[in-house]
Design a protein around this nucleic acid. Structure first.
Lengths: 145, 145
DNA sequence: TATTGTTATACTCTATAACTATA
DNA sequence: TATAGTTATAGAGTATAACAATA
């Protein structure tokens, strides 16, 4: 079946963005599965790092995840022994990494580092430096315009 | 909470790709909902167009959708009166657009056209021409390298 | 009053296994 | 044997409403 540049789908930047993201996420999810991590898990581990003052609500705002959907995510990390909840005051808890959590974070960082090298390596050199700035202009409120 | 260029998430092109795609898809889905179309619906309508020889299996391969997940998609379009199944041989059916399907396709094309103009307009001019080529190199087998 | 954390719930998208019928 | 279409099912991700407790 023809899929040349004449049809509106092949010419669509939105379609390219969707397909590229889905392809990338499938590949990354596969690599992270070897350390029993989902993409969202790894994002939380990277985000928290050594901090002891990051709440689930703060994470949900930073990653644009609904507060309510943080519950199973944090529970999963807690059940896996990767994070602990430390009371900050009467109503808030800090999500802090356990030693195993820090170990897992380091593994995730290595996997993601290799993954992103591979990712950028697929992009022709003349387009490479434009990739992240272009993407960030589509969602980051503080992106340069 | 700090979200500067020092943390591995803000510097990650993979994270930028994911967030940009999710942001874009949410916006497009919202606009297409005004003509009762999902993104996948519109993609099928655009793809089939005037052809009378496109099967669900062909669509599933072109869009990287599992064959099995085409069933509810096509049923939805058929129930909405947008497509008909025409027997091609004893085991295959062509998905063809009804007159209402062609009308809906035209509406979708207009919405998507405006949407993509807006999308590209958000990208700083110096990055704009690199956007689609960079993305296509990540998933299109025939992308120039 | 606004925020944090939570439960319950539902919808969408995606993925696998297995089956029938036809090429 | 391979392909087309289908059913059943399960796992993710995501969304809203509602509530209790605390700032």
């Amino acid at each position: 079946m023809s899929d040349d540049e004449d049809d509106p789908i092949s010419r669509s930047p939105g379609h390219s963005l969707r397909r590229a993201a889905l392809s990338m996420m499938a590949e990354l999810a596969g690599r992270l599965s070897e350390i029993d991590c989902r993409i969202s898990d790894s994002t939380v581990l990277l985000l928290v790092n050594d901090r002891t003052d990051v709440t689930a609500s703060m994470i949900s705002r930073m990653l644009d995840i609904q507060r309510t959907n943080m519950v199973p995510l944090v529970n999963r990390l807690e059940s896996a022994g990767l994070v602990r909840k430390m009371p900050l005051d009467g109503k808030s808890f800090a999500i802090v990494l356990t030693p195993e959590g820090k170990k897992r974070r380091k593994q995730a960082l290595e996997i993601i580092g290799r993954f992103e090298d591979d990712l950028m390596g697929k992009i022709p050199p003349e387009h490479r430096d434009h990739f992240k700035p272009a993407l960030d202009s589509l969602w980051r409120s503080d992106a340069p315009s």
